[in-house]
Computed example of a mutant assay.
Amino acid sequence: MIRFLWFDLGYTLARTNREDVYRKALERFDVFRNAEEIALAYHRTDKLFMREYPGVLGKDSRAFLPWYIGTLNYYLRLPLPIEEVLQVQRSLAQEWPIEWKAYDGARETLRYLKSLGYRLGLISNWDESARTVLARNGLDEELDEIVISSEVGLEKPNPDIFRLALSRGDVSASESLYIGDNYYDDVIGSQKIGMHCLLINAYGNRGIEELSYHPIISGIQEVAAYLGHAQVPLEMNR
């Protein structure tokens, strides 16, 4: 029986406003793409990096950003000069900073899952800003245990970070469910120690066509239903 739900942070509990910022950057080149086109291009770029270059996205962005922007523009069918795009992004940084914000309903979903009797935790590959992101969004208040790679010196998919979390939560792998958006970090890592894993992909199988993994959900608002419960009551989303 599942007693403990463990979550990833980025693109599981929280997301950035990167699509809006990039749309502003493209307008400087008289290029126009709608929010959905940009969001899907980001999604495909993330998934390609997760598959082909594991661990890179969790590192200093200066090490991979030109490479990443080139891939993003490929999916947007844009032959733009990467260095010029990066310069425009830097010029927009003060007016349009990239910010991490909880998904709509994320905090309410966590609160609802706690009301059902589940304990909740976080296992995330993140730098020292993780605690700030959690606190700003009120997510830390809903979590019983928080395990962050930069604090413990371990990163997913290393099974030891999952073992550490289980030890802190005083729960077994078979009683735990991990929810995350990166198959190569989240599913492979958690399954190495026998944890169940629920994969989030907002676009069905797009970006992960090479996989036949199930179950897949579109976001954490579907976790309760997956566990056999009713959806989050409307009054909790007010």
Rank of each mutant, 00 (worst) to 15 (best):
13 L>Q: 05
132 T>V: 06
9 L>C: 12
70 G>Y: 11
130 A>W: 06
23 R>T: 00
196 H>I: 00
83 E>T: 13
103 Y>K: 11
6 W>E: 11
126 W>V: 13
211 L>P: 01
21 V>S: 02
66 P>T: 01
57 L>G: 12
53 Y>C: 06
29 F>V: 08
234 L>A: 11
163 R>P: 02
63 A>N: 10
63 A>K: 15
212 S>V: 09
111 R>A: 06
120 L>T: 01
211 L>V: 10
165 A>D: 01
17 N>A: 08
14 A>N: 06
174 S>D: 00
177 L>C: 02
6 W>N: 03
106 A>Y: 13
157 P>Q: 08
176 S>W: 01
145 E>S: 14
49 F>G: 09
45 T>C: 13
21 V>G: 03
78 L>P: 15
77 R>M: 13
24 K>C: 14
128 E>F: 12
181 D>I: 00
93 A>W: 04
196 H>E: 04
154 L>S: 10
196 H>D: 09
26 L>C: 13
237 N>F: 13
31 V>K: 15
54 P>N: 01
27 E>G: 12
103 Y>F: 15
196 H>R: 14
147 V>L: 03
231 Q>F: 01
195 M>Y: 05
215 P>S: 02
210 E>M: 08
103 Y>H: 14
198 L>V: 14
56 V>G: 02
146 I>S: 04
183 Y>C: 01
161 I>P: 06
51 R>W: 08
142 E>L: 10
159 P>M: 07
126 W>F: 14
230 A>E: 08
39 A>C: 06
69 I>L: 11
173 A>T: 00
207 G>C: 09
33 R>M: 15
216 I>H: 05
200 I>Q: 09
37 E>R: 06
9 L>S: 02
63 A>P: 08
80 L>V: 05
122 L>P: 05
113 L>K: 11
178 Y>K: 04
201 N>M: 07
89 Q>E: 09
21 V>Y: 00
84 E>V: 08
82 I>H: 03
143 L>H: 14
71 T>Q: 12
184 Y>G: 05
103 Y>L: 15
13 L>A: 13
125 N>T: 00
33 R>K: 15
114 K>Q: 09
18 R>G: 12
17 N>S: 05
198 L>H: 12
108 E>L: 14
173 A>E: 00
199 L>W: 06
91 S>H: 14
174 S>R: 01
235 E>Y: 07
43 H>E: 10
170 D>A: 04
33 R>Y: 03
105 G>T: 13
125 N>R: 08
185 D>M: 05
165 A>Q: 06
194 G>K: 00
222 E>T: 02
191 Q>Y: 00
46 D>K: 06
1 M>E: 01
24 K>M: 08
79 P>E: 10
137 N>V: 10
159 P>T: 13
83 E>H: 08
64 F>N: 07
30 D>C: 08
39 A>S: 04
88 V>A: 07
168 R>D: 02
150 S>K: 10
143 L>R: 14
135 A>V: 10
109 T>A: 06
106 A>I: 09
45 T>D: 02
62 R>V: 01
10 G>I: 01
133 V>L: 13
98 I>S: 09
199 L>S: 04
190 S>Q: 02
224 A>V: 00
51 R>E: 15
179 I>Y: 04
157 P>G: 05
183 Y>R: 09
18 R>Q: 08
34 N>W: 05
28 R>W: 10
128 E>W: 10
162 F>M: 02
73 N>A: 07
44 R>P: 14
223 V>W: 00
214 H>Y: 03
221 Q>G: 04
49 F>W: 07
149 S>D: 10
